[in-house]
Amino acid sequence: MSERRVELEVLRYHPETDAAPRFQRYSVDCREEWVVLDALNHVKETLDPTLSYRWSCHMAVCGSCGMMINGEPRLACKSFLRDYQGVIRVEPLAHFPIERDLVTVIDDFMAKLKRVKPYLIPAQARALEQGEYRQTPAELKRYKQFTLCMNCMLCYAACPEYGLIPKFIGPAAISLAHRYNQDSRDGGRAARQEEIAAAEGVWECSFTGACSEVCPEHVDPAAALQQVKIKSTVDWYLAHLMPWLKK
């Protein structure tokens, strides 16, 4: 089994002792097939128990271990050492306040997610006794990719708009709103428009497309946002040019 010494440069910040973040270098004996998270765990176990970061599943579904790795937002559990040469620089996700070391404050995202009403608002009420709603595989496919968002927030770290204009609701939250809008069982689009079709919603997006490039689940948030823009635009024209269509 091949081993390799990896140089990790990790951003450290401790609010109780540090005025500002600083980098700390670790030399770690790693196995070639490891991911960056394994290297961090090795640091924590053998070199420095004070290093703090979040992680859990180690299989890219829980979304805990989003970090900037060599400047790029990535899941540490799916960033293979074999893909890196030289010093690997690990920082907390960009655009979020740093609580400590690699741990960020994500209150902003959690609040925004709630604002966009990311839950089914049934178009037609249905009692449990009536069984499931019918939904064809094609109707499922219409929104399925947007359900895959694990809230890892790499897209927020990649999005320059969010970095510059923090009130932007952002890619993941809008994608999840769009996920429900696209669901054949849902009738809640009007209720969500107030948040997502507003200035702080999709109109803050300038379609950099970085969110989709870094998304580990290929959710394609950029697609969701553009689709919301188009539909909102159509809404506007219908409302202003053909007001009689409005019920």
């Binding site: 910040y13 609010p15 109780e16 500002a20 973040p21 400047g71 790029e72 960009a94 655009h95 979020f96 306040p97 740093i98 609580e99 404050v105 320059p160 970095g163 510059l164 300038s206 950099t208 497309g209 970085a210 490039e213």
Partner: peptide, 29 residues
């Protein structure tokens, strides 16, 4: 209170962080 979250403000350097941002700026330009 021990908390003191630190926000690294975004600067214009983001444009050079990855080629995708340069491509984007070229499109905007």
């Amino acid at each position: 209170m021990s908390r003191k979250p630190y926000l690294r403000e975004e600067t214009m350097r983001w444009v050079f962080r990855h080629p995708r941002y340069l491509r984007y700026m070229a499109r905007e330009f």
